[in-house]
Simulated assay, not measured.
Amino acid sequence: MQEWITNTMNSLGHLGIGLLMFLENLFPPIPSELIMPLAGYVSTQPNSKIQFFGAIAAGVIGTMLGALPWYYVGKLVGEENLKRLANKYGRWIGLSSKDIDKADNWFDKHGDKAVFFCRLVPGVRTLISLPAGISGMPLLPFLLYSTLGTTLWVSLLTYAGYALGENYELVEKYLGPVSKIVFVVLIVAFVLWLLRKRQKNKGKKQV
């Protein structure tokens, strides 16, 4: 993976960075925690075709282009289709159309902040585009808050690689496990939520 990322970046320059970050949003196993620090490190090398601010711009553009497919997948699925699926199959996991309504109301109130902050969270930053699309979040606010969060994230990663030099891999070494931990925590939280919801439903039926 690292060799392929390095070769792509060296051969295509800023375009390669944009392409890698685009793919990272479609296929999360490709780590931005390695791509952007490497770009920051390469920008410090003499006669490098990659420039520090150019790397950041390419990373942001690639990320935003990669976020749009998931956003439109969410749009195509839509809230109404999701409700129909929840009513038809949701009983197997304790999910109903009312739950979808609650989630959608929450996203209407906090969606802007959710999109911004989730762009800074490894393991979640790619996935946030899906609920944004499903909830019907307008495209312009989605792009605005996504771009703000993404610019901050990409800049931090790129600067970390710039500052660490040859030790740029330390960024991925320490942030990589964080992505996995966050993902596991989300799954556990979702399972706990389902279990609590089922217990509440059982209590209502017994009464």
Rank of each mutant, 00 (worst) to 15 (best):
G176E: 01
F190A: 09
W193E: 11
G203A: 14
L192K: 03
V178H: 03
G203F: 06
R198I: 03
L192S: 04
V184P: 03
Q199G: 09
K205Q: 12
S179L: 06
K204N: 10
Y174C: 13
V171K: 07
V185L: 14
V185K: 03
Q199P: 04
E172I: 01
N201F: 02
V184L: 08
G203R: 09
L170C: 04
L175A: 14
L170M: 12
V178L: 08
L175K: 01
L192N: 03
A189I: 04
L170E: 12
K197T: 12
K200T: 04
Q206E: 13
K197I: 02
L175D: 06
R198F: 15
K202A: 15
G203P: 00
K200R: 15
G176L: 07
V178A: 02
F190S: 11
L175M: 14
V182Q: 01
V191Y: 07
K180A: 15
K204A: 10
G203L: 11
W193S: 15
Q206L: 15
K205P: 05
V178C: 03
V182K: 00
V182W: 00
L170N: 13
I187Q: 01
V185Y: 05
F183L: 13
V184S: 06
V182T: 03
W193N: 15
V184W: 01
A189W: 00
A189D: 04
P177G: 04
V188L: 13
L195A: 08
Q199S: 13
S179C: 07
L192G: 03
K173Y: 09
E172C: 04
S179M: 11
V188C: 08
V182Y: 01
K202L: 10
P177S: 06
V182L: 05
V178Q: 05
F190Q: 00
F190T: 06
K173W: 09
V178W: 09
I187T: 06
K202R: 13
L175H: 09
R198V: 08
Q199A: 14
K200I: 07
R196F: 05
I181R: 00
L192P: 00
L175Q: 10
V185C: 09
F183R: 00
V171F: 06
K200E: 11
V185A: 12
S179Q: 05
F183Q: 05
S179N: 08
L195R: 09
S179K: 03
L170A: 13
N201H: 10
K205S: 14
I181Y: 02
V191T: 10
L186E: 03
V191E: 07
K202M: 09
V178E: 05
F183A: 12
Q199D: 14
L192A: 13
I181F: 13
I187L: 14
